[in-house]
């Protein structure tokens, strides 16, 4: 019995090592890993994008690994030489961080069939945008009888104690602050006017939610009646029967491009490119635009229809007119100090 102890230990260690690092034995044969966002994005990509990609590429194996942008960056950063993710999806802020940290491969624009069909704002050579996220005004139609038309409506006295916002941790919160500043003569480089406006909004504020998801649930509880909100998040609530409507304010709805990137040193570069091509194709974008997904397309060949045509824009020309795009490079420069100021000043 005693005799075997050493040999037992060696084999146990080997077994353990093989279990802990399966990459030792099959380094190259990993399926394409696409880090999408959690929630409705994952559902939409699983149901539409993945089947389209597999059909076009001989059932190539693909794994969806949904996680937040920040986690994607952290994971790739931890193993730059052999990244565990092939395709990343990012909001504008994190996208610039990922590019700045040299985690992203330039998109092979020349090889791409669809890149030139995207609207100019979506044509980013470091990673094109397969869809937009749109932020406008959301309100409860049961208590707010005349639909709001402008960001300025949030300051109306009738909404005393009825307005909800999020803090600046989210893309939504930061983008909205910039828009408020712009409305009063500020810009991405100067949001002082935005903070002054926030100060004046305090009597109306019912809640400062920690994230957009928490904000949406406050409609459900009747805690707030009006707030800036994400078009897609509102569609999910609406589908669940919550009384909530979305309007694009007359100043323009804020559009964030969500960009998709090939990870640097990815062992599946070719398949990653194919997946992104599928995401840019008019077929996939048309399906995703329709109910129940209602994802705003970026390919000019997609004809707008349904809820998106009704609430947001009938075609690309109108979309460009009604959407406001922001310069996140400028925003990122000062975001830390804005968050600090928000932390200190906004107490209700």
């Amino acid at each position: 019995m005693m005799l075997d102890r050493r040999r037992l230990l060696t084999s146990a260690l080997t077994l353990g090592a093989m279990h802990a690092f399966p990459g030792l034995s099959l380094a190259q044969a990993r399926p394409l890993v696409f880090a999408t966002f959690t929630g409705s994005w994952e559902e939409a990509h699983k149901a539409v994008l993945v089947p389209a990609f597999r059909k076009a590429n001989g059932d190539a194996p693909i794994v969806l690994d949904p996680m937040l942008s920040v986690d994607q960056i952290a994971k790739v950063n931890a193993a730059k030489a052999n990244p565990p993710i092939d395709v990343m999806l990012h909001d504008p802020g994190p996208a610039l961080v990922a590019i700045g940290q040299d985690l992203v491969e330039p998109y092979p624009v020349d090889k791409s069939t669809y890149f030139k069909d995207l609207i100019p704002e979506a044509q980013d050579a470091m990673g094109p945008a397969p869809f937009f996220q749109v932020v406008g005004l959301t309100y409860n139609p049961e208590t707010v009888k005349t639909p709001p038309t402008s960001w300025a409506d949030l300051w109306k006295p009738e909404f005393k104690g009825k307005v909800g916002i999020t803090n600046l941790n989210s893309t939504l919160g930061t983008g909205w602050l910039v828009e408020i500043a712009r409305m009063r003569g500020g810009s991405e480089a100067n949001v002082d006017e935005g903070f002054k406006a926030l100060e004046e909004l305090k009597p109306n504020l019912a809640a400062v939610a920690a994230n957009p998801g928490a904000l949406a649930t406050l409609f459900q509880q009747g805690q707030i009646d009006i707030s800036p909100g994400n078009f897609n998040a509102i569609q999910i609530l609406k589908a669940r029967g919550v009384p909530v409507e979305f309007v694009a304010p007359k100043e323009g709805a804020i559009a964030f491009k969500t960009t998709i990137h090939i990870v640097k040193n990815s062992p599946n570069r070719e398949l990653a490119f194919k997946l992104i091509e599928a995401a840019l194709s008019p077929e996939v974008q048309t399906t995703l635009m329709n109910s129940p997904y209602l994802i705003v397309p970026t390919n000019t060949k997609v004809a707008m229809s349904g809820e998106i045509a009704k609430v947001l824009a009938k075609d690309t020309a109108e979309l460009k007119k009604k959407f406001v795009f922001q310069d996140w490079k400028k925003i990122n420069e000062q975001r830390a100090s804005w968050i600090e100021k928000f932390n200190r000043d906004i107490k209700i």
């Binding site: 937040l68 920040v70 803090n167 941790n169 809640a207 400062v208 939610a209 920690a210 928490a214 932390n343």
Partner: peptide, 16 residues
């Protein structure tokens, strides 16, 4: 909520 800042949220904000 988002305006009451405690240590866990503070460090999450800084990191993420």
């Amino acid at each position: 909520g988002g305006q009451m800042l405690f240590m866990p949220m503070y460090l999450y904000q800084q990191a993420s």
